[in-house]
Design a protein around this nucleic acid. Sequence first.
DNA 1: ATATTACAGATTGTCTACAAAATGGTGTCG
DNA 2: CGACACCATTTTGTAGACAATCTGTAATAT
Lengths: 226, 226
Amino acid sequence: MTKQRRTDTSRIPALPRTLSSHLVGLLRRQIITGAYKPGQPLREQDIEAEFGSSRGPVRESLRMLLQGGLVEYAERRGFRVRSYTVLDIENLYDLRASLEGMVIGSLAGQPLETLIADLHDSNRRMAACFDTNDLEGYFTENQIFHDRLIAESGNRPISEVMVYVNEVSMPVRYRLLRETLLSRRSLDYHERIVAHLARADIAAARGETQEHILYNKQAAALLYAV
Amino acid sequence: MTKQRRTDTSRIPALPRTLSSHLVGLLRRQIITGAYKPGQPLREQDIEAEFGSSRGPVRESLRMLLQGGLVEYAERRGFRVRSYTVLDIENLYDLRASLEGMVIGSLAGQPLETLIADLHDSNRRMAACFDTNDLEGYFTENQIFHDRLIAESGNRPISEVMVYVNEVSMPVRYRLLRETLLSRRSLDYHERIVAHLARADIAAARGETQEHILYNKQAAALLYAV
DNA sequence: ATATTACAGATTGTCTACAAAATGGTGTCG
DNA sequence: CGACACCATTTTGTAGACAATCTGTAATAT
């Protein structure tokens, strides 16, 4: 079949300015939501056919996903959806807890007004998602909360590393949210973290954050057990 | 000009089984040694011309370097050699110290015989490089020492993150080595670390490692000041 | 029966060539 | 002096072809 190309771009929501990055968005979603399953091979031809693009952008986008850690790659054997062991997941959450702890620690002695305001907003939106039982929104807002925290650090190396760690754990957290009853727990944690920050009690905020992440660690590890 | 290709592969040292990964090696070296300077644009055509390959492998290899953090990328603006601020460098070393500290901490209660033997070997080779004033060798062995330590953790997420952090700091450390009188200091640190591990004194090994890295932080930050 | 080898199909890696869009700079005009 | 149109350069997308390698299966030898 002949492929429409340039014109395709007009249908794209807003941001993706190249076909590759558009493809990244589509593939990423498939992986995070579990439509593409862990270990599944991602064959170039299949993806070409599925999204109607040529090989260049497909390979490009797979490389981009590789950078985020969502896919694995072996020379001449191609790409696969990343798979996780229970140990991986435990290590992942431990690492997140440590890193996010560092980020919060680095906030000490800085003006935090705008940060706190933004976090409040995020929490409000997250609460709204909870009330309307909007899973996708809840998931997204949760990520926004943590991203906002990281952005505040102004620490480029740690930000980059956190982006990676968060991206890798995305499918795990999505599954956790899906297969668990939607609870106010994350929301409550977030509100306590903001409260600690508002009192400039960095140590407490840090502890609360780590407790928050490590609680989820247990839940996630259970999901992947056996 | 006609390009030799398949046959090219025969000239390649050993490992690179694809042109892309071969290119990565060449480009990586240029960046780490400073032949390509921070901020310098990496134009596809230039690289094609320089190494006589086509677009595919060039873009592929640049993406791989991006994954290691050695280059920066902006859509439709292409790739550049990554550049560093003093703050970046301080943050980078702090992060390395924390992460490598975690790795060593995770070694507690495990059998360490082979690890210690390997580290000993690495140190011996590093000492030889020092004696013959072999900078390149010294640099490489130093990396091998730290890599070996990380590998022992069996912690995939932390390993991946450390690979990234080490890769990003590679040009900084190369420059530090180049512009500093070659001293036994790193070597001495390594030997003390191994000695602590041999006594199963994990806490001491951890402290020594962090001190080692944070000492270099100061030196590196000085290099990039002003 | 087990292990090895040989082969065919599928998949990735690379090249050439052309076309389309965006970027950054230049110069003109108000 | 600033806004706007123009242009060369560069990146991005597509197509088709062929080479190299991997995978799994079937035939062979032990």
